[in-house]
Structure formats: structure tokens, C-alpha cells
Amino acid sequence: MAVLSEAAHRRIGEFVAKYPERRSALLPALHVAQNEVGWLTREAMEEVAVILDLDWDQVEEVASFYTMYYKQPVGTYVLEVCKTLPCSILGADEMIDYISQKLGIAPGETTADGMFTLFRVECLAACHRAPVMQVNHRYFQNLTQEKVDALIEAARQQQLRTGGVPGLTVRRSHPDLIETER
């Protein structure tokens, strides 16, 4: 009972081919699975284990180690706001509070309509454009409350183009209406 598509299997197969050992492809394989299923369900981890000839336990050990893998269901849009020092100095905490209030959820929670999940995350390596947020792998930088409002509105209209890790994302992305300053 496969939960991963053929395309995902093919993609994971391509990663496997790059390494001398199958298990070396575990991290990208988990990304492929997460991008397709939305989070790392038990079934997804089991399927990855079978593909890579690992034990389930070994997959969960790795999956649980990295915060970038979701161990519970997340919304359609995952808002990951950097909380590390430079962003924090430039108002990340206030930004988190603002989003939190606007969506009615605490960090770590998902809105009732299943649309948004909010996370506080460690440095996203874009300190020069702090405060910064990542939505489904796409960066939104020099955040202001107005930008956040527009972004959330666009998402609600299903008109927010999100990114994806090049080569990892199988899920189709949405058209973008928000210009971010690069």
C-alpha cells in the first residue's frame, strides 16, 4: 500500500544511484516523502525504509533528529519565522506575535482550516535581509506587517507561489503574486 507516487519513487531512485550505499540517500528521500505527503507519516517512513533497505527505527532516528522534518501534520502553508539573533534584533519576536495573533495560533500549531502552520526556527542564513521567513521552502525577507498581511491574503486566495528544494519537490507549486526584495 504505497503512499508515495511513482514519481517520488523514481526521484528517490535517482538519489540512491548517486551514493555507494543505499542508506546515504536517506535525507533527500525523507524530503521527497515529506514534500509529497506533507509530513512524515508512519507509512511514509516505512516506505522510505523499504526503498532504502533500512529498518523503520533507523529512519525514525534520523527523522526525529532534524527539525526540518515534520513529525505531525502541518498546514498547506508552513510559515517558518527565523528567531535567531539578527532577526530577533530587527523584530522577529514581534513578527511572530503578530502572525500568531492574526492566525489565532501559537508557534507549533496549525489553523483549524488546515491552511497555516507557524514555527519559530533557527537561522535561515539570510541575516542581511532580516527579519526573514520561509514559506514552503521559499524565502520572504525584510518582513513587515503589511507584507505578512498580503502574503497571508494571497495564500488564502491560493495565489501564493511557494518554492521547493530544487530537485526535491514533487508537489506542484502555486503562482506567485508577491514580489520579494532580493
Binding site: 529498518d55 527505527d57 533507523q58 525514525e60 532516528e61 526525529s64 533528529f65 532534524y66
Partner: peptide, 9 residues
């Protein structure tokens, strides 16, 4: 039997 693992970090 690989039953006990370390979770998280």
C-alpha cells in the same frame, strides 16, 4: 531486533 532508538537531538 533494533527496537530501542534515540529520538530527537
Amino acid at each position: 531486533d533494533k527496537s530501542i532508538i534515540l529520538l530527537d537531538r
